[in-house]
Design a protein around this nucleic acid. Structure first.
Length: 450
RNA sequence: GUGAGUGUAGCUCAGUUGGUUAGAGCAUCCGGUUGUGGUCCGGAGGGUCGUGGGUUCGAGUCCCAUCACUCACCCCA
């Protein structure tokens, strides 16, 4: 094969199949039922708690993420979708949202607002990662942040809210909350120095990854699963010995408040997070069976971040959870969510006169909250009923020339296969009776003001 | 980024040690005569067997590459 044909062949194999790129998926109607439900729960709980929703752009200048998440983290080193715009500016599809929210907080001078500022989001994110169960290149997260106040009660509050949302979704029992403190930035600096001192001279016993970690991200040395590394980690200096008095007391208070809120948790001194901005409290929701493999969310305090990103020193704490992972857990537990897409009534008609009357009738039915589909095409009665069957409606209305002439309409009970003739003017009342006032789709977005 | 497994119709899967024109169930569409669905009966459409090479008289089946999916690692939501 010549070079040219090879080039042509590879070019050919790349272009024709129109399908989603690797690691990304369509969210089809049946999946949206879960997405919708989760969003509803999140919005409800956070609105109740006084949080306001925020959406930041899907892409930011690369530095927003690189500086906040940390240059040496896996996310920044290998998982970001980074590209140049036409002017050569480096932009990145957001891999998470805390950085964007903090950037927005600074940019819009939110420190001028009543503190703390409480924000939540439900958005898609992007990471260039090898796809796997519960890990996609585009994925949805919801999260919430409290920025502008330092108090252990807020940390407890965040964990409590996260747990509350899990309760609403019926999955709280599937998770064990892992809790730890990684101290203040100052504590951590001292600890990392001690850790490095301990490991220097022992490099030969470390696995390849850990040799790298020693310089780039020493905290990660502690949770390596390699046998030799584990043994070394056991004997390594403990974070707790390097915590300042304030940090220790802070952590103690967080635990006290959690006890007060009756939140069960497991203290996990090895828990560190893959993003550099965290300080003091860190926590993750681990699958009770699979552990970290199947974590659905995590968070913690990040008191240094606002300052790192050029704002005034401002304390903050937050949480984020993966929506696809939540759905996977719900499905595994066979948890069903209510679907509001079911149709109440199918309207079948024959003849032009009947069709005319149906147009208005359908509109009136929908106004009252009856979810209605009409077959306004030319199909035969047989075809229309078949269609009604596909939509799985409990009732079908049948309007033909005879009924138009007599001012009546037929209500067919699809399950029983029985039908009754009612006065055309009374058909809506009859249907509401059958379906039940409480089942009508009466949702209103609220009154607009002119 | 590393390792392993899988890839046949829209879906779930058969397809013998390589051998005629690649099958089934479900789904879809059309019939079974007037304005009545589901069940039943009859019929039809739908595949360059993931893609590209190679071996062979002959490849869905064997080999190589590639892509995708799944799983594990790394890491994370």
């Amino acid at each position: 094969m010549t070079d040219t044909t090879q080039a042509q062949a590879s070019k050919f194999s790349l272009s024709p199949p129109y399908r989603t790129p690797k690691g990304v998926h369509d969210i089809l109607p049946q999946d949206h039922e879960y997405h919708t439900y989760i969003k509803k729960v999140v919005r409800h709980r956070l609105r109740q708690a006084g949080f306001k929703r925020i959406s930041t752009p899907i892409f930011e200048y690369t530095d927003v993420f690189a500086r906040s998440i940390g240059d040496a983290t896996d996310i920044v080193e290998k998982e970001m979708y980074t590209f140049l715009d036409k002017k050569g500016r480096s932009l990145t599809l957001r891999p998470e949202n805390t950085a964007g929210v903090v950037r927005s907080y600074i940019q819009h001078s939110m420190q001028q607002l009543a503190q703390p500022v409480e924000l939540y989001y439900i958005e898609p994110f992007f990471r260039y990662d090898r796809p796997q169960r519960g890990r996609y290149r585009q994925f949805w997260q919801f999260g919430f942040e409290i920025i502008g106040e330092l108090d252990p009660a807020l940390d407890a509050q965040i964990i409590f809210l996260a747990n509350k949302i899990n309760e609403d979704l019926g999955i709280e029992k599937l998770f064990k909350i892992q809790l730890n403190t990684i101290g203040s930035l100052e504590d951590r600096k001292n600890y990392i120095r001690a850790l490095k001192d301990y490991y220097y001279g022992k490099e030969r016993s470390l696995c390849e990854h850990c040799k790298d970690r020693l310089e780039k991200n020493p905290l990660r040395l502690l949770d390596c699963k390699n046998e030799d590394c584990t043994i070394l980690a056991e004997l390594a200096p403990k974070m707790t010995d390097y915590l300042s008095k304030e940090s220790t007391e802070y952590y103690r208070d967080v635990k006290e408040y959690l006890a007060e809120l009756e939140i069960e948790y497991v203290e996990n001194p090895k828990l560190v997070r893959g993003l550099d901005y965290y300080t003091n409290t860190v926590f993750e929701f681990w699958d009770a069976k699979d552990g970290a493999q199947n974590a659905i969310g995590g968070g913690g305090r990040y008191d240094g971040l606002v300052e790192i990103m050029g704002g005034q020193a401002t304390p903050a704490v937050g949480y984020a959870a993966g929506i696809e992972r939540i759905i996977a857990h719900m499905k595994r537990e066979k948890i069903r969510v209510p679907s509001k897409d079911n149709i109440h009534v199918f309207v079948a008609q024959l003849g032009k006169e009947a069709k005319k009357k149906c147009l208005k009738l359908i509109d009136e039915m929908r106004e009252t909250g009856l979810k209605t589909i009409g077959a306004l095409g030319k199909g035969s009665m047989k075809k229309q009923l078949k269609l009604a069957d596909k939509f799985n409606v409990p009732y079908t209305l049948i309007l033909g020339i005879t009924e138009v002439r007599e001012g009546t309409i037929i209500i067919r009970d699809m399950e029983k296969g029985s039908q009754e003739i009612v006065k055309f003017d009374q058909v809506i009342d009859e249907l509401i009776n059958k379906i039940g006032e409480e089942n009508l789709d009466k949702y209103s977005p609220g009154e607009i003001i002119y």
